[in-house]
């Protein structure tokens, strides 16, 4: 595309983000501040993820973009088109074929492999923000590893509902040190963070923070001995592909109470249906 550098961002910005990414990888789970740029899309549309993707993407990479697991929703389609225009890269919907996957709020069902990079779009990177509004304080709490308040928050769920009611953006501890917000992925996806062979990068555009989980890193979801971490379960299987182990979306089909459950990961669902057919 004429008039723009490869992948939209100028080289100076890319270098700044690349240096921050190396520090993020060196200190897993720590939020590195970076000089976030204004992107040609509003905050909340994945500007953090887009800047990370633009800084790592190469002309030979194959890019996949998903929004809540789907390749064909507005956010995914617009970001995919963005990189097709400004970087001219090949895109795919197949998880297995992608080198870089930018995601909004899901981890693909198909296991990732070594060498792949998963880029998360993050709205609020600070897991302690709803407990402590001051950035200075939360930074100090991370420095002192003062995370007891996070357990209090989870305990309040138990006191009120009898179980931990947090279902997404479920806090994790990375390599036994930093408590980290895994972005608003369903807690169903939390176990996939642990020991994943792919590199996982997180970018928050409005808050101008990025962080990382290197491959094969220990990632634990916070819990209690008597209330261990549990993922969501469904009584249904996917109405389209029959999977009983994927994350399901409930779809209302009429105004008489009709509903069906389908996979949120469209590539996984379509691949399974292709295999069955």
């Amino acid at each position: 595309m004429n008039g723009y550098n490869f992948a939209y961002l100028d080289e100076q910005t890319k270098r700044m983000i690349r240096r921050a990414l190396l520090k993020a990888v060196a200190i897993p789970g720590y939020q590195v501040p970076f000089g976030g740029r204004e992107m040609p899309m509003p905050y909340g549309w994945g500007t953090g993820g887009v800047q990370l993707t633009a800084s790592i993407l190469g002309a030979d990479d194959i890019l996949k973009v998903i929004d809540q697991g789907a390749d064909d929703t507005t956010n995914a389609v617009s970001i995919r088109h963005f990189f097709q225009r400004v970087a001219g890269v090949e895109t795919t919907t197949a998880t297995t074929a992608a080198d870089v996957i930018q995601t909004r709020h899901r981890i693909p069902e198909t296991p990732l492999r070594s060498g792949q990079i998963l880029v998360f779009q993050v709205p609020i990177p600070e897991p302690l923000r709803f407990i402590e509004p001051s950035e200075q304080e939360t930074r100090l709490m991370h420095a002192l590893e003062e995370y007891g308040v996070m357990h209090v928050k989870l305990y309040e769920d138990i006191a009120r509902y009898g179980h931990i009611a947090t279902t997404y953006a479920y806090p994790v501890k990375v390599d036994g040190r930093y408590v980290m917000d895994p972005s608003p992925i369903p807690k169903f996806d939390n176990p996939k963070l642990d020991g994943n062979p792919a590199l996982m990068l997180f970018g928050a555009g409005r808050e101008k923070r990025l962080y990382a989980i290197p491959p094969h890193t220990r990632v634990e979801s916070l819990d209690f001995e008597d209330h261990p971490f549990e993922i969501q379960r469904w009584e249904h299987s996917c109405a389209l592909c029959g999977s009983d182990r994927s994350y399901l979306d409930e779809v209302i089909t009429d105004d008489k109470g009709g509903r069906m459950f389908v996979c949120s990961d469209t590539d996984y669902c379509q691949t399974r249906r292709g295999e069955v057919a």
Binding site: E11, R18, G58, L199
Partner: peptide, 14 residues
């Protein structure tokens, strides 16, 4: 620089 950075990122993450 993109190609080199990805190699450096790979080296740092593994």
């Amino acid at each position: 620089s993109q190609r080199l950075f990805r190699q450096i990122l790979g080296a740092m993450s593994e």
